[in-house]
Amino acid sequence: MTSTITDRPRPELRELRAEVRRFLAGAVEAGVFTPRVNSWLTGWDESFSRTLAERGWVGMTIPAEFGGHDRGYLERFAVTEELLAAGAPIAAHWIADRQIAPSILKYGTEEQKRRYLPRIASGAYYFGLGMSEPDSGSDLASVRTRATEVDGGWELTGTKVWTSGAHRAHALVVLARTATDPDDRHAGLSQFVVELDNPRVQVRPITSMNGEHHFNEVVLDEAFVPDGGVLGTIGDGWKQVTSELAFERSGPERLLSTYPLLQELVAATGRGSVPADARVGRLVARTAALHRMSADVAETLAQGDSASSEAAVVKLLGTRHEGDIADVADALAGGLPPDREPWLQEHVRASLLEMPGFTLRGGSNEVLRGIVARQIGVRR
């Protein structure tokens, strides 16, 4: 990141950023990876994830007793910003490190912590999220996957969709309905850890329009999960999942998915390959403002406080910003001859293809506006 506003009172964060930048610059120069947009979702490289773990940059906030590194959320924030800004391939460990580890720490049993957290911190164990379902959009309260109690555990039946990385992951955290309350759709939901070597789980690929495969449909057909696979408390699934969504919605990936494109656009403007345009300056300024907002949420979470409405604002504004970067870059560079700024044009093409998903994943903008209106009193 070119802006390190949150680091000014904290020289240790500046030093950490500098260390990560040197590592990433060396990795790019050595051909370890080629920067790409949307790298946290589409850049799957298990070897790179393990390398990051060896340097202590995966599982940073996991306590040392569970194989982690006892570092703070702001340190993790600094590292993840640099990885995203560089377009590094971090999809393999991303969901496990961002969302599943904090959830297991908060709600998991001692056995779950000792089973999963060291594996996550090693950069070699990967999770997916079993939330969205067919015909449900972003309405998690309409979940129809059902968990039925049986001897020694639960049987899960239903279908999850848009499940990133499920074809490569080791486990999913699945939101399922364990009871029905006609007066409260949010009641009766529970979370389960479903390991994907389960013979009653089928993963079906969903291929994107650009030919890439990172989404999946996951079908659970009376998949047995032992009692030890219950995450948290039966019936508290809605409270748990909304708490977890603060980690999903507020992170720097919600504003930096197309940051490598913005960097290329600024560089091309400086070289005179594309015309100087005030819109580019506005995008740079907005990136700095959103960086500050996302960092504020990270500080709130670090203190153990709730930040669900603030996270919704960051996600709402950040994902629109990512799309604006693609639109402005396309307007300024889309008509260049193929031999001029080819890397910029490649980033533009990739960003435009990925852009429709920016405002949908993690909750659509319509859902987020409702959250903001209810929780912080915004009236439209």
Rank of each mutant, 00 (worst) to 15 (best):
N216D: 14
E217T: 15
V219F: 10
F224S: 13
P226L: 09
P226S: 15
D227N: 14
D227R: 15
G229C: 02
V230N: 08
L231Y: 01
T233G: 02
T233C: 01
I234K: 06
I234A: 10
G235P: 00
W238F: 11
W238N: 03
K239R: 15
V241N: 04
V241R: 10
L245S: 09
E248D: 12
E248K: 04
S250V: 03
E253W: 10
R254F: 03
L256I: 01
S257L: 14
T258R: 00
Y259R: 14
Y259V: 09
L261C: 08
L262S: 05
L262T: 04
R271G: 10
G272Q: 01
G272M: 01
S273L: 15
S273V: 11
V274E: 00
V274D: 00
P275R: 14
D277N: 13
A278H: 11
R279M: 00
V280I: 15
G281F: 09
G281E: 12
R282Q: 13
L283N: 02
A285P: 00
T287Q: 05
A288M: 01
A289N: 01
A289Y: 00
H291Y: 12
H291N: 12
R292Q: 12
M293I: 04
M293C: 06
S294H: 04
A295Q: 10
A295E: 14
D296A: 14
A298H: 08
E299L: 13
E299C: 06
L301G: 01
A302M: 03
A302K: 07
Q303A: 15
G304P: 12
D305W: 10
S308Y: 13
S309W: 11
S309Q: 06
E310T: 09
A311P: 11
A312Y: 07
V313G: 01
T319W: 03
G323S: 10
D324E: 14
I325S: 06
A326P: 12
D327S: 09
D327K: 11
A329R: 05
A331P: 02
A333L: 05
G334N: 07
G335A: 11
L336E: 03
P337L: 04
D339K: 12
D339A: 12
R340N: 03
R340H: 05
W343T: 07
W343E: 11
W343Q: 11
Q345H: 07
V348A: 09
